[in-house]
Structures are given as structure tokens and as C-alpha cells.
Write a protein that binds this DNA or RNA. Structure first.
Length: 146
DNA sequence: GCCAACGTTGGC
DNA sequence: GCCAACGTTGGC
């Protein structure tokens, strides 16, 4: 193990589908897409902690309010190309697989072991960490292997 | 469409 | 450095 290596970490990316949907993400294929436009320090700091190969949930906010797919970090944090402002950087992510069935916010709120998720406790944070236990539960609810 | 939560900005 | 005003997000 090299210094700085760690186990895979898990995250959650929120997007309003009318702006950027799971289908848009899938259409980008292996190449992936910059997760740009984040202008929140907490969300940015989470992206700075990401390493290539980390997995994330893709969550649709607003109308749908459900985790719909799995993504993978394919480029670590770099300058956000939509701004000159050096404060803002972001990772690239690519779609890995859709959930067999979406896991709704209502279900997540109902599950006692998911009550501590930022999705529940800090509704406005758009890029957030997910624990390994939370990851496993949501994958199970979504009908796919973790 | 409303409103609560919360982050950011700017005046002092 | 505080805090009021304001803007934005996102659930309901």
C-alpha cells in the first residue's frame, strides 16, 4: 500500500433532473462528465476528498426525490471549467449502473439505519459522504449488489 | 407555490 | 467580527 491509499469511499451526488439527469449522465458513457457548477464549500470539500474509483449514488431531487443510479469517480478534483474562480473545483463522474428500482427519499427516511444520512439531516448539501453501511442498505433496497 | 433551512454578502 | 438582509435549495 502506498501512503495515502485507502479503501473505496462512497458518496451521493444530487441533481435536479431538468438540469442534469441520470439519462444525461448515462449518455456521456465511459468518458464521464464534470460535476461542475457547485458553489458550496462543504460540497467542494467533499469532492476534494474523492479518489478515482470511489462510488457514488446519483440522486434526483425536486419532483422525483430518489436514488436512481450508481456512478464512479473517474477524474479527481480539478478546476471547474465553468468558472475562472480558482476556489471552485470538481471531479468527473461516469455512470456505472442504474438501480433495479429507485430508492425514494420517503423510504430512506423510514429506515432507522438511514436516519443519520445528510440527505435527511442536511437536505441542501448537494455532494455528501455515504457510509459503507448506508451504501449496502440502499443497494439492497435498490435491488442491486453493493 | 410556499416556506424552512442554511449559506453568503456586506454594512457597521 | 457580528449580524441583518438576502438568495438559493429542495421538501412538502
Amino acid at each position: 500500500m502506498e501512503p495515502g491509499d485507502r479503501l473505496m469511499a462512497f458518496w451521493l451526488f444530487k441533481s435536479e433532473p431538468s438540469t442534469w439527469s441520470w439519462d444525461d449522465q448515462v449518455a456521456k458513457g465511459e468518458e464521464g462528465e464534470e460535476w461542475d457548477g457547485v458553489r458550496n464549500y462543504q460540497a467542494r470539500n467533499n469532492m476534494r476528498l474523492m479518489r478515482a474509483g470511489d462510488r457514488g449514488f446519483f440522486y434526483h431531487s425536486q419532483k422525483e426525490k430518489a436514488v436512481v443510479g450508481i456512478v464512479e469517480v473517474c477524474a479527481e478534483s480539478h478546476q471547474d471549467s465553468t468558472t475562472e474562480d480558482a476556489r471552485w473545483d470538481c471531479v468527473d463522474i461516469r455512470a456505472v449502473a442504474p438501480l433495479a428500482r429507485p430508492v425514494t427519499l420517503a423510504e430512506i427516511k423510514e429506515h432507522p439505519d438511514l436516519a443519520e444520512m445528510a440527505l435527511v439531516k442536511n437536505t441542501r448539501l448537494s455532494v455528501q459522504p455515504v457510509s459503507e453501511a448506508e451504501w449496502a442498505i440502499i443497494c439492497e433496497l435498490g435491488g442491486i449488489a453493493p
